[in-house]
């Protein structure tokens, strides 16, 4: 997967590049907003990681210009700009996700993977599948191996997010942000509690656990056999 990193701080750029390269991605780094605009304007990258405060053209403006030019490459803002309204500003400029510095690398990889493999909007599915587990977004039903599973609304949302990213690691923060719109760090084990309830319903008595805990990173639901 090809990743473009727009980051003017050399340490961070090197750290991101090394980490993503080790994970098997091809990484280009540029330090100027205008360079990033030219490099990315032919949509040759799968994901862009953009710092907001860079010389030339700032990150926000770069993304706005790219979107205005019709470039749809997913963008992850990776920035120290972490004010209350800054996240919304980033997403409104055309960003797809927003991660604030300092960050854990597992968090960054998980989010980059989630963005890169996102299906195009035209192919929005109404039926999600993970091995023998099926989630019907229209009927709001879940079945495993043909057997109906009753989920509470919050549990349904959590499972939906996991299955949208089947085969990928989703972190605790990603779940808090996308499933419950919690953009802060709650002290309680919200994710763990909900996860244990979903597991009890989805995995117990089926002989195979679809939901995996990835140590130090998050959770993953198996995509296929």
């Amino acid at each position: 997967m090809k990743v473009l990193v727009l980051e003017d701080e050399p340490d961070t750029a090197a750290y991101v590049k090394r980490g993503l390269s080790e994970a098997g991605h091809v990484v280009d780094v540029c330090t100027d907003g205008r360079d990033a605009f030219h490099l990315a304007s032919d949509e040759s990258y799968d994901v862009m990681i953009v710092d907001r405060m860079v010389p030339g053209m700032d990150g926000l403006k770069t993304v706005k210009s790219l979107r205005a030019a019709g470039v749809r490459t997913p963008v992850l803002f990776l920035t120290a700009v972490s004010g209350v309204g800054d996240r919304v500003e980033g997403l409104e400029a055309g960003g797809d996700d927003y991660l604030t510095k300092p960050f854990a690398f597992t968090e960054l990889t998980a989010r980059v993977n989630a963005l890169a493999r996102r299906p195009p909007i035209s192919e929005v599915k109404t039926l999600l599948r993970a091995v023998d587990l099926e989630l019907d977004l229209l009927k709001r039903t879940v079945t495993r191996a043909g057997r109906r599973i009753e989920l509470k609304p919050q549990e349904f949302r959590l499972l939906e997010y996991l299955m949208l990213h089947a085969g990928q690691v989703v972190t605790r923060t990603m779940l808090l942000e996308h499933v419950w719109s919690f953009h802060f760090d709650p002290k309680s084990n919200i994710v763990e509690s909900h996860m244990s309830r979903i597991r009890a319903k989805v995995d117990r008595g089926f002989g195979r656990d679809l939901i995996q805990t990835v140590r130090g990173a998050g959770y993953r639901i198996d995509a296929d056999a």
Binding site: Q154, N189, S193
Partner: peptide, 13 residues
Amino acid sequence: RVRQIYEPVAEDE
């Protein structure tokens, strides 16, 4: 919504 989110946490605790 917050009640629903914290329900399982309450049970666990």
